[in-house]
Amino acid sequence: MMWSELDTWIVITGALTAMACAVPGVFLLLNKQSMLGDAISHAVLPGLAIGFLVSGTRDTFPMLLGAALAGVFTGVVSGMIERRGRVEAGASLGVVFCSLFALGLILIRLAADHVDLDPGCVLYGSLELAVIDSASVPRIAWQSGAILVLNLILAGFFFKELQLAAFDPRFAKASGIPAGWLQQGLTVITALTTVVAFESVGSILVIAMLIVPGATAMLLSRSVAGVLLWSLAVALCSAVIGHLSAISIGPVFLSLLTGHGNLGSLSSAGMMAVCAGLIFFTIFALAHLAQRLFSRVKEHSVTPQA
């Protein structure tokens, strides 16, 4: 295993992106909107394509704008279908993001002559290539850092409002907190984070990092602040361990299983998602064991009562 400066940047970028995602992810989770992350990461595709088509460049700004609009569009339209058409929430979300994703695939193909955008790249990202940059700090690294800082500031600023809006949106509304606008804001932030992250790690890692750290943290803590902190820790760990295993034990393990000799290093983004999943399932199993043990002890202490 060879460790180079690139590996350091991959880990740093991955960790920053993962933590940037974990922050809005916790609130999505509390709002029971986990699949919105998935939906947005699919739905931004036409936004990106249109951004490219209009501006003709791969500049960040039109891309961000197009994606943010697509994200808001997803939230608003699926909400409308749910309310006006009385279609179940999950299904209306599914209808919207599938249609948008299909539209995006077609637009990209249509725009193929003008811009170089590969849907595969949007999905899986390529952390390994993105960090190759002439600057001393790769653009992608400071972008992820910036979005992390932005998300942390916003979460800190609106912490109690977001908490209340997630717990009891009606009460929040009645007491003058614009739960609806907070919701839209969360959608926009999720879309922005998705776009910044997709270039480096691809939309799949975005979905994983939005939800898996938060879900793991939910098993570990019962306060929202605690969940937020734990989720940052889990995101950091999955990024570090993910890249390490992608270049070391991952390929070895896979070679042994499949009988292919000398496989090269695996996709870091993919392995980061896998590691987040492994951390989740480990803690899930431990928590479940602990709970069982606890309830057995309790049962013993209760039953003798007549």
Partner: peptide
């Protein structure tokens, strides 16, 4: 069934982790 997590979280977790594993192997 076994945790306090809701449906949507379970779906998102499995979706992203499994797809991540798939991507890792695809890169190989």
């Amino acid at each position: 069934k076994l945790s306090r997590l809701k449906d949507d979280a379970a779906l998102a977790i499995v979706l992203s982790v499994f797809f991540g594993a798939g991507i890792a192997m695809l890169s190989a």
